[in-house]
Design a protein around this nucleic acid. Sequence first.
RNA 1: UGCCCCAUGGUGUAAUGGUAGCACACCAGAUUUUGGUUCUGUUUGUCAAGGUUCGAGUCCUUGUGGGGCAACCA
Length: 559
Amino acid sequence: MSETAEKSLNFIEQIIEEDVKNGKHGARIHTRFPPEPNGFLHIGHAKAIYVNFTLAKKYGGVTNLRFDDTNPVKEDTKYVNAIKRDIEWMGFEWTGEPLYTSDYFEQLYGFAVDLIKKGCAYVDDQSPDEIAAQKGTPTEPGSHSPFRDRSIEENLELFEGMRNGEFEEGARVLRAKIDMSHSNMHMRDPLMYRIKKVTHHRTGDDWCIYPMYDFAHGQSDSIEEITHSLCSLEFENHRPLYNWFIEKLEIFPTRQIEFARLNLNYTVMSKRKLLRLVEDGVVDGWDDPRLPTISALRRRGYTPESIRDFAERVGLAKRNNIIDIGLLEFSIRDHLNKIAPRVMAVLRPLKVVVTNYPEGKTEYLTTENNPEDESAGTRELPFGRELFIEQADFMEDAPKKFFRLAPGKVVRLKSAYIIEYVDHKKDAAGNVTEVHVKYLEDSRSGQDTSGIKAKGTLHWVSAEHAKDAEVRLYDRLFKDEAPDSHKDRDFMEFINEDSLEIITNAKVEPSLVEAKSGDRFQFQRLGYFCVDSKYSTDGKPVFNRTVTLKDTWAKQKGK
RNA sequence: UGCCCCAUGGUGUAAUGGUAGCACACCAGAUUUUGGUUCUGUUUGUCAAGGUUCGAGUCCUUGUGGGGCAACCA
């Protein structure tokens, strides 16, 4: 992360620099990432993680990881582990041990008692429906609960009763006593505690009352002395309440700052919708490479560096945004171009016979592993009389701008020889089954004295030496740019039925059978591929296509 | 018909009262044993109307458009 002197600051950095300049909190910066352990992290979270961790680090601060586990109905330890793994994989380190809002339940209870004693909270015996009815609407004020003016003593007694399990679920709640006619709905006597006789993933059955988000999140920030609590725009309306509790409780004044969350086109990001895709079997689990979850991106072959680069590029502001998926693809191409070894793989093989090459002969040709990185070295490729090239690299009736193999054309085989078209065979259906060519013996790569210039260069594998491999090609999961933006159509209607193509008979160069789970390659002229962690077996790797190479030829064809 | 937030090329994001810049995308060209990479160049923008000012993307007013808020969810 090289910071050029010219680089302008985003609005949060400006706030932080102002705070540092003024010596606020001793110029200390402390942020937190507060996931609820009820689902998997996605690329939107990745931005929030990036923002919280890099901002703190930039100003010499640290970041807490705090699981916001105040709703035992939805939360589970299995998510805790997945979330920790994803953050670590992204390359970030939280300070100390992971923290949990549930660690503060006793303290939070004390805060509530304090508020009751100050006359700022009361126990309400009404049902959810009654409370909702009194809430009013955004344009009409609410009305007071008949229990609003209970004595402090009675409130204290009832609240303790709630804690002790004396009442049924839903029978009573604790509410803040603020203003039922406030223009901000969140200030109309919001709920602080509700009764839930549910086992919590960490505290077990110790509690049967649990604090609401609004009475847990800000207070946890205060307890941890978080200086800047960064959250998404939807919590803007909660900030007055956040500050009200800080003021009444006289606790550490964390400042909440909201920023716009990340949105990506051609996908969905909400946990609920992601869960539906998984449960309906549309995708193959939370880490299906077509999903925008961090575990899916990892499995697909994205690097942590590329995710961080992307998070930096999307910027930080308060404006709602929809980022083009193409930007994410740029980030991963940019990184993989520098680090991925180039290899030969033919996805849809077409047999080529080099008629003037000796039968039974094998020669080994040297090729560079990565033209962008000399230190990557070279390797030897077997070459023989029978080869496979890509079906799309031969055309019987080629347009003038087709730089590949066709009647009357010559092409270079990458790191090998220039070949010249001789003949081709077709089956009964008219499909080309075999192409015959002659090679130019004096055109060997690196020792070319033929004087011939070939316009195109093809990738290839030796038929005798090539290994079979399975390759999985992914396309966007949705056909619509914003599948969940249609008011009267379900996002599932926009599923792209062709988002996964499995090729079982790809031919790859022999070295690839030794590839290990997670290894990344550039299949020359095709794209970047990663050995799948789920379906690969020893000696039989399955390759996931991370992203294609930029393809200006395909673009031209489309015209 | 309440409150809060937002509005700069196709998409994002800068300019903090003084030349509207950067990235991605797009288009054109150069290089290339990957139609990749790299390099060069072009096109495209301040929501509207008033006001303040020598000067407004920036400040003020009023509109318009978009987003959020009425879960015992977070």
